[in-house]
């Protein structure tokens, strides 16, 4: 396990408050692209606003308020462009929102994907988390709404969670700006390769599907050596996703 998880305090020490500058919507010539994904109503826009200093509309309402927002911040002289994706429950269906989110993670190739999850409903949120981890291996889980979780007497063992998922986990209460410095530090570490993730891959797949997937991944990897998400492409091919088929044909995927 190469993942280095630092406890919250450790990271605080690392965090260089001086090095942070919120850039608002001025995102010219950035060094890294960061995507914000997650279920609806988990606080993505709140995290986005906390990071960029912008005031995107946030609403306590699962449904799209805005389609896609961009902003930026600068940390230790590196510029990060942040993209707030529409909230979705899954990336497996075909609704407009899901396609937008999926396309950005897959084709936009963000340097880091921040997955915002509701700490009160982790199991439900993991559905999306596990799907994203099949697509990208540069991700961090932002365990948001920790204040509510505490009020509801829910406690989460972040270390074990990080180990199980194979990516860093940062607990936050974005509304109160708690945990945001740690999140920035982690984003920067992943972008710069200081943290290397080894993401969880879906395990409990039935045998007949697993066999089919293995056959396909072997073929895909033969054609595109070193591709990080061959298994996910196999899943999509088995579902008959025309967009992925076309992307495969045009070579957009690599």
């Amino acid at each position: 396990m190469e993942t280095k998880i630092k406890s919250a305090c450790e990271t605080c020490a690392h965090f260089n408050a001086e090095g942070l500058k919120k850039l608002g919507i001025h995102t010219d010539d950035f060094d890294f692209v960061v995507a914000l994904a997650g279920n609806p109503n988990t606080g993505k826009s709140t995290v986005f606003n906390a990071l960029t200093g912008l005031r995107q509309h946030t609403g306590n309402w699962p449904g799209k308020t805005v389609t896609r927002a961009e902003g930026g911040f600068e940390y230790n002289t590196q510029k990060f462009k942040l993209v707030d994706l529409p909230g979705t429950y899954s990336l497996l269906s075909t609704s407009e929102d899901e396609e937008a989110a999926r396309d950005f993670i897959l084709f936009g190739k963000p340097n880091v994907t921040v997955i915002v999850a509701d700490a009160n409903r982790l199991e439900r949120n993991l559905n999306l988390v596990l799907q994203i981890l099949e697509i990208t291996d540069k991700a961090v889980l932002c365990l948001n709404l920790m204040d509510e979780a505490k009020r509801n007497h829910i406690s989460i063992d972040e270390r074990t969670l990080a180990r199980d998922l194979g990516i860093p986990v940062v607990p936050t209460s974005a509304r109160f700006n708690k945990g945001i410095p740690e999140l920035i530090q982690t984003i920067s570490d992943i972008a710069n390769g200081t943290i290397v993730c080894k993401p969880h891959r879906i395990k409990s797949v039935p045998d007949n599907i697993d066999r089919a997937v293995k056959k396909l991944t072997t073929e895909i990897e033969k054609e595109f050596p070193g591709i990080p998400n061959s298994r996910w492409i196999a899943f999509r091919l088995l579902e008959g996703d025309t967009q992925i088929i076309n992307a495969l044909k045009s070579g957009e995927l690599v």
């Binding site: 199991e123 439900r124 559905n127 509801n152 063992d157 199980d164 969880h200 409990s204 797949v205």
Partner: peptide, 16 residues
Amino acid sequence: SIYADASEIVKDTVQS
């Protein structure tokens, strides 16, 4: 399967 994995992960990390 995804939800099965999820509930396994939750089992050893979440206490409520």
